[in-house]
């Protein structure tokens, strides 16, 4: 179990838990080497094999304003932690819960940003496979700025990639899964475009997509440019918009209906204030005040605020062993 105050690989100290997902938890961590707060996603080794492989193959290729690229990863014991920039505005799920349907200006801008991220991902012959609001993070502020995250299910579809890396079971989330993917088709960038269509539908309606089947284009959009754009993303393979680049080209000529005079959308900072003992520049020295008045005997009863840190050399050694084990596991699994 990882707990607050632990230091991983002699470098990343867990500050507080900022989120949790199906496969692991996300911590705010302090980077003792370079300074600064990061997000650290903690996964079991089994869950991390795919993402380690992905990161090894692709990690550095995805430096993009609308992608949360992993910065690195460290292994320790049976856990792996991926570090990435701390994106503070929550996910698109949070935004939809706060506002319901979004103004068209927001929905279209977010869609274009998603597509720009997918242009890069698909350009590298990678399919994300799990585009959905939960995996779309936002920067706080009054203008839309999303970042595609969670490449744990991403897969290479390059011609020269080993066939075995294409998993033979359906991966994705019901509701966002194109029908051909649900029926077992090989991963294809077109399936990400379908999921973008579902996300756009969700931003326009404020509703959750049906678990099965394709959501229907809202009646009031049916004869509009936006409705046409949406239906081409949700269309069956063959008539679906064939690339992220083509979708962006179509989107450029879709006008956004002016929002009625509602309160403007704002993405709030969803990462809480730093816990006690932490400041903008990292751990703050313990306050000497009240402790000084406590008798030495009583002081011994007060538990240390943080667990003692491991010597850096030992921790790095452990991390190195972990990395070697992971690489071996990866080779065994995917060779």
């Amino acid at each position: 179990m990882w707990v607050m105050g632990d230091v991983y690989a002699g470098r990343f100290e867990l500050v507080d838990l900022v989120g949790s997902g199906a496969h692991g938890s996300v911590w705010r961590v302090w980077d003792h080497r370079d300074g600064g707060y990061l997000a650290g996603k903690v996964l079991s080794q089994a869950d991390s094999v795919a993402i380690v492989r992905f990161f090894r193959e692709q990690g550095l290729r995805f430096q993009h304003p609308h992608i949360v690229a992993p910065l690195g990863w460290v292994g320790e014991d049976d856990r792996v932690m991926f570090t990435m920039p701390l994106v503070r505005g929550g996910s698109l799920t949070t935004l939809l819960n706060d506002y319901g349907a979004l103004p068209q200006r927001w929905a279209l801008a977010i869609t274009d940003q998603l597509l720009s991220a997918l242009e890069v991902v698909h350009g590298a012959e990678v399919v994300h496979r799990d585009i959905k609001p939960h995996n779309i993070l936002l920067e706080p502020g009054t203008q839309p700025h999303v970042r595609v995250s969670d490449f744990g299910t991403a897969v290479s579809v390059a011609d020269d990639s080993p066939r075995l890396t294409r998993l033979h079971h359906v991966v994705g989330t019901p509701g966002y899964l194109a029908s051909e993917a649900a029926e077992g088709a090989d991963p294809d960038p077109l399936q990400d475009l379908y999921a973008v269509g579902v996300v756009l539908w969700q931003m326009l309606t404020g509703e959750r997509p049906p678990r099965l089947g394709t959501p229907a284009v809202p009646v009031d959009l049916q004869d509009t440019a936006l409705g046409g754009f949406l239906s081409r993303l949700l269309a069956p393979v063959g008539s679906r918009t064939h690339s992220a680049t083509e979708a962006r080209r179509q989107l450029r000529i879709v006008p956004a209906q002016a929002a009625h005079a509602d309160e403007p959308v704002e993405v709030f900072d969803q990462v809480g204030a730093l816990p006690e003992g932490w400041g903008p520049d990292g751990p703050t020295p313990a306050e000497p005040g009240p402790i000084a008045t406590i008798t030495p005997a009583a002081q011994e009863l007060i538990p240390a605020r943080r667990a003692p840190r491991w010597p850096v050399a030992v921790a790095l050694g452990v991390a190195a062993v972990g990395i070697v084990l992971l690489v071996v596991a990866g080779v065994l699994l995917f060779a």
Binding site: G100, F268, G272
Partner: peptide, 24 residues
């Protein structure tokens, strides 16, 4: 209510008027 904690504080502190999501 199904909204984020920062959104609820905005409403409580008088920085926003409306609970925007009809479900909430």
């Amino acid at each position: 209510l199904g909204i984020s904690a920062p959104m609820l504080s905005q409403l409580i502190n008088g920085h926003r008027i409306k609970v925007a999501n009809p479900t909430a």
